[in-house]
Design a protein around this nucleic acid. Structure first.
Lengths: 186, 186
DNA sequence: ACCTGAACACCGTTCAAGT
DNA sequence: ACCTGAACACCGTTCAAGT
């Protein structure tokens, strides 16, 4: 006689995101996830193929959430320079308020644990659109890569505690946005 | 009767770096390291307090090697703009040729596994000096943070396979160096 | 059809016993 | 003083047995 499901992929992913943020990537064990959704760890393998696939599903979920906040910032930003600044601020705020989630997006993990192309595109669409207005279509890709490299590098170093020479980190961020915004303008 | 040492911290760190680059961070197990230096894993605990300290020693070693290549690039670079471009190229070349080592420098690891301040400073000294000439002493720190954030963000995304939209990655790097160099000039 | 205990092959780490 | 086997508390994952 078939026994009814006690959990679902959606519930597993949601529980995993809570555990990730609260206990870090190392704390995100299959046993811990199983406990959170009320089963034993072997049962999780009925829903996901393993921890690697689970990480990918979580990363996709995070990328979608980031996409929503970037889209909102782009829409509220107005002219290209202001929109870029708004998106940069939203990007940094997302990373600082969800450090473990942000870290997972760029973690050195097996290929199979990485964000799917679809979700990756969703998160970068608004930036490409805005940068294309700023830098012109000929340089849109290079300019977007310059901006996102800077933003990712900045927040990941900030999260890693790599800015240890004093000074105001907020000021360095504002300085970077200003210089980049001006220098990428067509 | 005292038995003679069969290994040393230096040998352990050197062996670990080889293993790290060849087999990745997950492959760098205490047993694997012990095998490489010819002892059993419990013996490693006579030299290092645990895997975390071992990772820190490796990271310090990597930071020193990076410092040497950046110093050389700064010295060969000539005027500030050219020196910055040479350092950026050297930085990227280092990361691409030692991807696992570079990844360890910025990995999300316990505080106790991170590069020591001394080695961190050694790796950033030449950049701060050169950027100070370029942007003037008042903006040296912000300008250096902008540059290093961009460079780190760029190569870490490149290593993570995050540039998936086609185009020439080399061209985006050259574009970024050029724009940043010009916009940071005082 | 789903869930589970038991088992397997790994980890890092500790420690008493050997030399 | 250093090295080791054995043990401990964990992992992720598999699978036969239960319902």
């Amino acid at each position: 006689m078939p026994t009814p499901s006690r959990t679902s992929v959606a519930e597993i992913v949601a529980a995993s995101r809570s555990i990730l943020e609260a206990e870090g990537l190392d704390g995100l064990t299959m046993q811990r996830v199983a406990q959170a959704v009320g089963v034993r760890s072997p049962s999780l393998y009925k829903r996901v193929s393993g921890r690697t696939e689970l990480l990918r599903l979580i990363a996709n979920d995070i990328a979608d959430e980031l996409a929503v906040t970037l889209d909102a910032a782009a829409a509220a930003g107005g002219r290209p320079r202001a929109a870029i600044a708004a998106m940069a601020a939203a990007y940094r705020a997302f990373a600082l308020s969800h450090p473990e989630a942000y870290g997972l997006l760029f973690a050195r993990l097996p290929e199979a644990a990485r964000v799917d192309e679809t979700h990756n595109l969703r998160a970068s669409a608004a930036l490409l659109r805005t940068v294309s207005e700023l830098a012109g279509p000929d340089h849109a890709l290079e300019a977007a890569r310059t901006l996102v490299a800077w933003a990712h590098g900045f927040v990941s170093m900030e999260l890693a505690g790599a800015f240890r020479l004093g000074g105001e980190v907020d000021r360095a961020f504002a300085y970077g946005v200003d210089r980049l915004g001006r220098s990428l303008e067509a």
